[in-house]
Simulated scan of single mutants.
Amino acid sequence: MSHPSSTAAREVTRIVNPRFEPGRVDGHRARRLIDGRDVPATDPFLLMAEDHMPRDAFSRHPHRGIETVTLVLDGAIEHFDSAGHTGLIVAGDAQWMTAGRGVTHEENAVAGSMARTLQLWLNLPAGDKMAEPRYQDLRGATLPVRREPGVEVKVMSGRSGDIVSPTLNHVPVTALDARIDPGASFRQDLEPDTNAFVLVLDGDVRIGMQAISVGEGELAWLTRSDGPEGSQVTVAAASRGARMLLFASPPLREPVVFGGPFVMNTQAEVDQAFADYRDGRF
Rank of each mutant, 00 (worst) to 15 (best):
Glu11Gly: 09
Pro172Met: 00
Arg179Thr: 14
Pro261Met: 04
Val171Tyr: 06
Gln95Asp: 01
Val12Arg: 04
Ser157Trp: 00
Val39Tyr: 01
Asp193Glu: 13
Ala131Pro: 08
Pro18Leu: 10
Gly203Phe: 02
Pro44Ile: 03
Thr13Phe: 02
Arg24Trp: 10
Ile15Phe: 06
Asp35Tyr: 11
Val235Pro: 10
Leu118Met: 07
Leu246Trp: 01
Val103Arg: 03
Ile89Gly: 04
Asp35Ile: 02
Ala220Pro: 01
Ile34Ala: 10
Met1Ala: 15
Gly65Leu: 07
Arg159Phe: 03
Asp137Tyr: 15
Tyr135Ser: 05
Asp162Arg: 12
Thr142Val: 04
Arg224Ser: 12
Phe80Trp: 14
Gln267Gly: 01
Glu21Trp: 07
Val173Gly: 04
Pro133Leu: 07
Pro166Ser: 08
Pro62Phe: 13
Thr234Tyr: 10
Arg31Asp: 10
Gln267Met: 12
Ser239Cys: 09
Gly161Trp: 06
Thr167Glu: 03
Gln95Ala: 06
Phe80Arg: 15
Gly161Lys: 08
Gly241Ser: 14
Glu216Cys: 10
Ile212Leu: 10
Val151Pro: 00
Gly241Val: 11
Gly23Thr: 07
Thr266Asp: 05
Glu132Asp: 10
Ala236Arg: 11
Met209Asn: 14
Leu88Gln: 08
Trp221Thr: 06
Asp162Lys: 10
Asp43Ala: 05
Ala248Val: 05
Thr104His: 15
His3Glu: 14
Leu201Met: 00
Gly102Ile: 00
His79Trp: 13
Ser157Ala: 06
Met48Phe: 08
Gly215Ala: 13
Phe197Asp: 03
Val235Glu: 03
Ala238Val: 04
Thr142Cys: 10
Thr223Trp: 04
Phe45His: 03
Pro144Thr: 03
Asn123Asp: 12
Gly75Asp: 09
Ala273Ile: 10
Ala9Gln: 09
Pro125Glu: 13
Asp271Tyr: 03
Arg116Lys: 13
Leu124Ile: 07
Arg278His: 13
Asn108Phe: 01
Val90Lys: 09
Gly100Met: 08
Gln210Glu: 13
Glu218Ile: 02
Met156Asp: 00
Arg253Val: 14
Ala109Phe: 05
Pro4Phe: 12
Asp193Leu: 14
Ile66Glu: 00
Arg206Ile: 07
Asn265Ala: 05
Asp193Thr: 15
Asp128Trp: 14
Asp193Ala: 11
Arg243Tyr: 07
Met244Pro: 06
Leu252Glu: 00
Asp189Gln: 13
Ile89Val: 12
Pro44Asn: 06
Asp26Pro: 00
Val233Lys: 07
Ala94Pro: 02
Phe247Gly: 02
Ala41Lys: 11
Glu78Asp: 09
Thr234Ala: 15
Met130Ile: 09
Tyr277Lys: 13
Leu252Trp: 06
Ile34Asp: 07
Thr174Asn: 06
Val90Met: 11
Gln232His: 13
Ser165Pro: 04
Gly260Thr: 02
Ala30Gln: 13
Leu143Thr: 01
Ser239Arg: 14
Ser160Leu: 01
Gly227Val: 05
Leu245Gln: 01
Leu246Ile: 12
Ala238Leu: 15
Gly150Cys: 04
Glu11Arg: 08
Asp93Val: 04
Arg134Lys: 14
His79Lys: 10
Asp93Glu: 06
Glu107Tyr: 01
Val171Lys: 03
Trp221Gln: 08
Trp121Glu: 02
Pro261Arg: 08
Ala49Phe: 11
Arg187Pro: 07
Arg278Gly: 14
Leu46Val: 02
Glu67Ser: 12
Asp35Gln: 04
Asp56Tyr: 12
